[in-house]
């Protein structure tokens, strides 16, 4: 399991470094901060799935003494790891640059929770349709559901303020949201395992 994760991190190392650098720049505009957690996770998972597809990695890995469930679980762990890493990175940079005054901690955690669910869905799509098609579908869904309203909001002025207000109203239950998102992520993983087993038979 550890070596599968290590392999994925190694193969996506350039993507990760690039996003961390972009993330650093984004921190100076707190309203842009939330998209960083989402984009680094999406970027790494999409890259890793495309790499597997390009080199028929799943066929190769399936001939090794490792179960199909383990292969899927390792990708979900990779997603969890990147979300955790990006969230911690954001919190540290916000503390350092803005002393956490620009954006509420609960907002950051809320975004982390949403990122987890959305990317868990991306992985499920790629086990169902293969990476290339999954990413196309995913982009269409994400653009129509999340980004367009969010961009509209920015273009209507008051960047990020409503999001912050919305998030602070949920402050009391942010732990609940995190736990619920983890549960949803776990359920998506179980469905993915099933889908992957069917696809490989």
């Amino acid at each position: 399991m550890i070596h599968l994760l290590y392999k994925d991190l190694y193969l996506t190392r350039k993507t990760i470094l690039l996003y961390l650098l972009i993330g650093l720049l984004l921190q100076f505009n707190p309203s842009m901060t939330p998209i960083f957690i989402f984009f680094i996770t999406y970027g790494v998972l999409a890259k890793t799935e495309l790499t597997e597809e390009k080199y028929e990695g799943y066929t190769l890995l399936s001939t090794l003494p490792v179960s199909k469930s383990t292969l899927v679980i390792s990708k979900y762990l990779l997603g969890l790891l990147i979300v955790g890493l990006a969230t911690t990175y954001t919190l540290i940079l916000q503390l350092w640059i803005n002393n956490l005054s620009g954006i509420a901690v609960s907002t950051i955690l809320g975004i982390a929770a949403a990122t987890l669910i959305v990317n868990g869905f991306l992985l499920l799509l790629s086990y169902k349709y293969g990476a290339t098609r999954a990413i196309t579908y995913f982009r269409i869904i994400v653009l129509s559901l999340f980004l367009i309203p969010w961009l509209l909001q920015i273009s209507l002025g008051l960047p990020g303020e409503e999001l912050i207000l919305w998030a602070s109203s949920l402050q009391a239950s942010v732990m609940t949201i995190l736990i619920l998102s983890l549960i949803a992520y776990g359920v998506l993983m179980l469905i993915s395992i099933n889908t992957f087993k069917k696809r490989m038979s």
């Binding site: 193969l11 028929e56 003494p65 179960s67």
Partner: peptide, 22 residues
Amino acid sequence: SETLIKQKIGYVGENQNFYQDL
């Protein structure tokens, strides 16, 4: 016993690609 069997099998695929950048 899938993983047990695969411990004892060696496989060389046609056009088998490992990760080419490694």
